[in-house]
């Protein structure tokens, strides 16, 4: 039991570290993207070529996992949700770039960055049984989104 708790605690800590590393990856990627868009002003083409490169790199490491997961017993529900995850991400990126054609960055970026709250709302409405949402999570997300809105408004 003691060992089980320890393992779960390690998993939680690793999960948070990975989430921070992901944010650092996205954050530094954003800075490089801004630099590229200054010299090559076509954000959607920049996004599509970097997606091709990203997909190629991930394929090198995970193509075996893909074959393994799909050959065991084709999990239709899981497969379709992975496809929806890709569609949602593409919708996010492309909508943001198209939105920037109609409103300034100081408006589009803070609105787009409210996504953690959207996630919590979607989880609460559609998948309440999958994960519990605590008051701390809701308040913490509100603080994070407020901070992000302040930063994006004043830096864009």
């Amino acid at each position: 039991m003691q060992l089980n708790i320890k393992t779960r605690q390690n998993k939680v800590i690793i999960g948070y570290i990975l989430a921070f590393m992901s944010a650092i990856g996205y954050g530094t990627g954003t800075v490089v993207t801004k630099h590229v868009i200054n010299i090559f002003p076509n954000p959607i083409l920049v996004s599509s070529i970097s997606l091709i490169i990203g997909t190629a790199i991930i394929s090198i490491f995970y193509i075996k996992n893909l074959i393994q997961d799909l050959s065991n017993e084709t999990p239709i529900k899981e497969l379709s949700n992975a496809i929806f995850a890709g569609i949602s991400s593409a919708l996010g990126v492309n909508s943001l770039f198209i939105g920037l054609k109609f409103v300034p960055v100081s408006v589009a970026s803070p609105v787009a960055n409210t996504f953690p709250l959207v996630t919590i709302i979607i989880m609460k409405i559609f998948y309440g049984k999958l994960e519990k949402i605590s008051l701390e999570t809701i308040l913490g997300s509100l603080l994070i989104v407020s901070g992000i809105i302040i930063i994006t408004i004043y830096t864009s």
Partner: peptide, 10 residues
């Protein structure tokens, strides 16, 4: 459109 982006990311 920006809200759509938020929904997409979220």
């Amino acid at each position: 459109i920006s809200l759509t982006a938020s929904i997409g990311f979220g």
